[in-house]
Design a protein around this nucleic acid. Structure first.
Lengths: 213, 213
DNA sequence: TCAATAGCTGTCCAATTAGTCAAGATTTCA
DNA sequence: TGAAATCTTGACTAATTGGACAGCTATTGA
């Protein structure tokens, strides 16, 4: 609203994209750690190494910034969600999906944490995104499981719970990292540790669902 | 520091306990939903239906209140943690433990969420509690699993990952309730839903670990 | 009954922080 | 080059909020 482009035959600068991205990244880390209210524009500005007023040039207000971060993050999630494709071989599909989710936890822990915090807070800013598309996606995947059950390819377990188990166990390694580190008495989760965890999860889920590998 | 009991042969009132408890309960809900920074003393006061200044009479400051809430909560957790007793029958032990954890998620969702938020934030106020005792507990349970593996009572899976799977999947139904509600298109998680979830988790974990029931 | 102690709260204050703004610097392209 | 558009930022403001505190009421036990 500050400067409205009246009829300028101007170039929609690419500085814009760079600066926005820089700020968004800093904001994601800040929001994931301290939540919406707990984050300060000042700290985000410092992390992004720009003056605070510069953030307000690119984003209308704090909520707008938060929304932009959330949207950014949700696009990432979508990619991983859709990794759960339908296929005739449940062992193959679920293995891939668990690996993809686990890889996401490893490479995008802050995105996972941001999402988790939103959920725990009652998803006040997420409910808009998680409506019809999401429910459709969920229903479709459920029906794939159902068909596997009908074909005797897996045990008769309510598919929703299987999906929830995959989500929870994989996200745990991003969201609850401090607890894992303390419990296992290590100080970083290595890539090898993630692979070992993924292997364990795959073993338990597949075998636990009666899926032949 | 306001009124120091110099040498009063007085009775350490029981009003104290009541008021403290009232405030703690309101604070737990508030902190679980909005986190430490996001919570305001004013809102907690309103929820507890006491003037804000009254909270400051019982608790030194916001951090002190938060610490008290956290300590309260951790005592609850301990009880459930210790449900994982050692016993010769893994099916029995794990079944009971999963049920206990699930029951905790159902009856104490705010405690679960508070704990989760702390973890996701890097456990800044929790690290003190989660040191030696916790690590000892974890090691001991791990060795129980190891003995089961040695006795051929379960598959050779790194015990830590099994415990993490139990924790994550059971806590999920408290922490990520909004997501579950949206996905399953219901508006409350009934006791029956919890039992069904517990049954699924038990099926998958036990069978997945190769534990005979 | 009556101090002494414990419990309560309205009012105020200082610090933090989101957001504004206007002036200036830089970039773009005709 | 130059003027229009875009970008930058220091300084300021208003609102929120944690916390202090003095004076008050209620409870207790002798």
């Amino acid at each position: 609203m500050t400067a409205s482009p009246s009829r300028g035959s101007y170039k929609p600068g690419r500085i814009r994209e760079q600066s926005r991205e820089l700020i968004l990244q800093a904001a994601e880390v800040e929001f994931a750690r301290h939540g919406f209210q707990g984050s300060t524009m000042q700290r985000i500005a410092e992390a992004a190494q720009v003056p605070k007023a510069n953030i307000h040039y690119y984003f209308t207000n704090k909520l707008g910034l938060y929304g932009a971060v959330l949207e950014n993050t949700l696009n990432l999630w979508d990619t991983v969600f859709n990794e759960l494709s339908s296929n005739d071989d449940p062992a193959d599909v679920l293995s891939r999906y668990i690996d993809a989710k686990m890889e996401f936890s490893r490479t995008h822990p802050t995105a996972s944490r941001l999402f988790a915090k939103e959920m725990i807070s009652g998803a006040p800013h997420l409910s808009a995104y998680l409506q019809e598309d999401y429910q459709l996606w969920f229903k479709q995947r459920m029906s794939v499981f159902d068909s596997w059950i009908k074909q005797g390819k897996m045990d008769a377990i309510e598919p929703a719970h299987v999906i929830f188990m995959i989500w929870s166990s994989t996200q745990y390694y991003a969201d609850f990292e401090p607890q894992i580190l303390i419990a296992t008495q290590t100080d970083t989760l290595t890539e090898a540790a993630f692979q070992e965890a993924a292997a364990s999860i795959k073993h338990i889920i597949l075998k636990g669902c009666g899926i032949r590998t």
